[in-house]
């Protein structure tokens, strides 16, 4: 199993498309950073809305590395799953298309081990991708924009988190994002096991993520009540919960607190359940699959 896993990791990092994902994300984050460096005050003015009329503040202080990282992660909501699907969607079907899947299946290893090795290999890719995102969006932003308190904008309030209380939240958020992205990887793996070419699972995964995200975000009671709780995308935004700092009756934030930790834990639980569901289904399908290519 370990050897199989190593081979799968090797295969992923031999493909140019893997590095393409890193290049795309780097370019994308760089463009956001450049945009915020040049026109950040205007963007901030929009985010603050009526606060501009009531309060005085130094926009330069708000526009710091922590805030830029938060803005980047907010904007990457749809894009990272696409990059995950790009690799995980190809992991089985790519080999089916090349004809190497049959060769692999005739080796003295179980089919379950093959699928699990592929899943864990894609986990390495997702982990490294998120690590890279964390490095360029957080540490590079901190170098360029400096450090200060973090302002988190919600629909009807603004929350300020003190400098010393931010970094652990990012660590937890990236940890959560890893679980969320692994759901996408597991879904792509599932679709990959039933397909004979790479394009189908990649496009289908992206399509499902986009569709589910739209339904999750639509404020339509029918969807909110009956469909939303069953969509994995409804739980993927849970990383933000780490930045929803709790406050007392005087609207004073409480250092080190999280407003609703049970909701985050519930989201983690739901996402893990989806991973188990998709991977189990992938193993079951692959075990019974008649490999003809």
């Amino acid at each position: 199993m370990w050897k199989l896993f190593q081979i799968e990791v090797y295969k992923i990092f031999r493909k140019p498309r893997t590095y393409l994902a890193f290049a795309i994300i780097t370019g994308f984050i760089f463009l956001i950073q450049l945009g915020l460096l040049v026109n950040g005050k205007e963007f901030l003015g929009f985010m603050l809305g009526t606060v501009n009329d009531m309060m005085e503040f130094n926009a330069k202080d708000i526009l710091n590395g922590y805030w830029v990282c938060f803005a980047i992660l907010n904007l990457l909501l749809i894009h990272v799953p696409i990059l995950v699907a790009l690799v995980a969607g190809d992991i089985v079907s790519g080999e089916a298309a090349m004809g190497t899947l049959r060769l692999m299946a005739i080796k003295p290893v179980s089919r379950a081990a093959i699928i699990l090795a592929k899943f864990f290999a894609s986990a390495v890719y997702v982990f490294l991708l998120l690590l890279w995102i964390a490095f360029i969006s957080l540490f590079v932003s901190l170098l360029v924009f400096g450090s200060n308190n973090l302002m988190v904008a919600k629909v009807d309030d603004l929350r300020i988190i003190e400098t010393g209380d931010i970094l652990w939240r990012y660590c937890c958020a990236f940890g959560f994002a890893f679980i969320a992205m692994m759901v996408v990887a597991a879904l792509a793996l599932l679709l990959s096991t039933v397909s004979k070419n790479s394009i189908g699972p990649i496009v289908a995964t992206v399509g499902i993520v986009i569709l589910c995200t739209l339904i999750s975000e639509m404020e339509i009671p029918l969807y909110q009540k009956y469909i939303r709780p069953y969509l994995f995308t409804s739980y993927m935004l849970g990383w933000k919960g780490f930045f929803y700092i709790n406050y007392n009756e005087d609207n004073e934030t409480i250092r080190g607190s999280i407003e609703n930790l049970p909701a985050i834990l519930k989201s983690i639980g739901a996402l893990l359940a989806y991973i188990v569901l998709f991977v189990t289904a992938s193993v079951m399908i692959f075990k019974r699959k008649d490999i003809l290519s």
Binding site: M47, G49, T50, V51, D53, M54, N74, L77, A153, K154, V155, D156, D157, L158, E217, E219, S234, L237, G238, W239, K240, G241, Y244, E259, N260, A263, I264, S267
Partner: peptide, 26 residues
């Protein structure tokens, strides 16, 4: 003490995580 106005941003901008605490704020 001073008068304040409403603060509201579209959900499509903030992409809030709906953790069930919206009512408290409301």
């Amino acid at each position: 003490s001073f008068n304040t106005k409403d603060y509201k941003l579209p959900k499509g901008v903030t992409f809030d995580f709906d953790d069930g605490t919206a009512k408290k704020t409301e």
